[in-house]
Design a protein around this nucleic acid. Structure first.
Lengths: 223, 223
DNA sequence: TTTTTACGATAGTACTACTATCAGGTTTGT
DNA sequence: ACAAACCTGATAGTAGTACTATCGTAAAAA
């Protein structure tokens, strides 16, 4: 089935790669296999050498697409947040009521991703799990400020600001819209992590979703 | 000046170290210099070799205290959370009113730490900054579940539960006390990180503290 | 005084994170 | 059709990390 979504490409800054991985078959295999592999081994144990072996290619060939594994992680996380913003816009654009719009936004941004949907070589469900376990590592480095200046976090910041605007639409006198927005984005990943590994310090479980928690929180804070 | 605090030792599970660093002069130098060094270089660039050189000692000697640098980070973060809980108890124990108690707790847990106070060889201010930039790395690993079972995160979980109980005292019908507690603890570190590196997606700055944001949030959510 | 213990020094291993070079196959331009 | 350009895989090599093992000595404890 060929839909509009299939033909939309998530465009990322070309500083993230040496050669655009979307431009060749090998590049796409790198993306798809790296998602599998980072998900399975964790970012620390993941190496270009192992990735090369897994896709029947060579370590040196992967370096022709990405400078190093950190840049590859940045590519994947940027892709994820770009994809999330697309989902957000598609789901909320037609909603007029600002309160309903915000609730829908929070739902989109905090829900677990099950379906491996529209983009052939990217498994969004596994990518989402990578975000939960590895996203913080992409910015908790000594190079953040430099990389931030080069635009490596623009997609995420734009999404956070988008959410912040929605919060302001619901209550224009609320003094912390940006902090609340970033708390929802980061906190959602964190609550999902806790649900998987530290159940005693979260209320989220099979029956209670992070979405329910954050919708309740936001509603009451903006009242 | 010799106070009660000077004579209190933060006791940590002995699984965190090979030899108790508090038991010798070299051990204390390892703690104090590692805080300096991780703060300066970041956890990734920090190595036992560099640490050895810095304290005029030997790489192999450091391995006699800590299995590896991950365990050292766990030691430092556990120490920090133990110290935080002590601050929390000291500051809130005498308060009867549960609402005031909770506000005081949030203040203690979300404020910046300036003073390098009671424990000679530990610089709490720098340790706090390490927590902001490195804490997530201590649990975002493939070994979390194993390490959690061995009790490496007990101090942190106990603190979160402590805060959760305080939240329940203010409003016993609030359905997400544990998630709110973990959101405050983790979110506080995150907002401080944003304040330093991504100012556009936080409202916290010199004039607005994370404390103000989280007190406002909590008050309104529990209303 | 003997014996443990602690520490520093050195050596060595396996692996990571690259960089450089070369050769063959495929694609592209004319 | 033919050469040039390009892409990929293979191999080699370097510097550094994250250890482990062994040894000698000085100081502390028995």
């Amino acid at each position: 089935m060929n839909t509009l979504l299939d033909s939309l490409k998530i465009e990322l800054t070309d500083k993230l790669y040496v050669k655009d991985p979307e431009s060749s078959d090998l590049g796409k295999r790198i993306l798809s296999a790296s998602i599998e592999m980072i998900h399975e081994l964790g970012f620390e144990q993941f190496t270009f050498k192992k990735l090369g072996t897994a896709i029947g290619s060579n370590e040196s060939s992967i370096y022709r697409y990405f400078e190093n594994k950190h840049k590859l992680l940045l590519y994947l996380t940027n892709w994820y947040w770009g994809w999330m913003e697309l989902q957000l816009v598609l789901a909320t654009n037609s909603i007029d009521n600002s309160q309903k719009k915000l609730h829908k936004a929070i739902e989109i941004l905090t829900q677990e991703i099950q379906q491996d949907s529209s983009y052939g070589h990217i498994n969004e469900s596994k990518l989402h799990k990578i975000l939960i376990e590895e996203y913080s590592k992409s910015f908790l480095t000594k190079e953040v400020d430099k990389e931030n200046k080069e635009g490596y976090f623009m997609v995420y910041k734009r999404l956070a600001m988008h959410l912040s605007k929605m919060i302001q639409s619901v209550n224009s006198t609320y003094p912390y819209p940006s902090s609340l927005a970033s708390t929802i984005l980061e906190g959602s990943l964190h609550q999902q992590f806790l649900q998987d590994h530290f159940t005693s310090i979260t209320d989220c479980n099979e029956h209670v979703s992070p979405t329910a928690y954050f919708v309740h929180l936001t509603t009451n804070v903006l009242k």
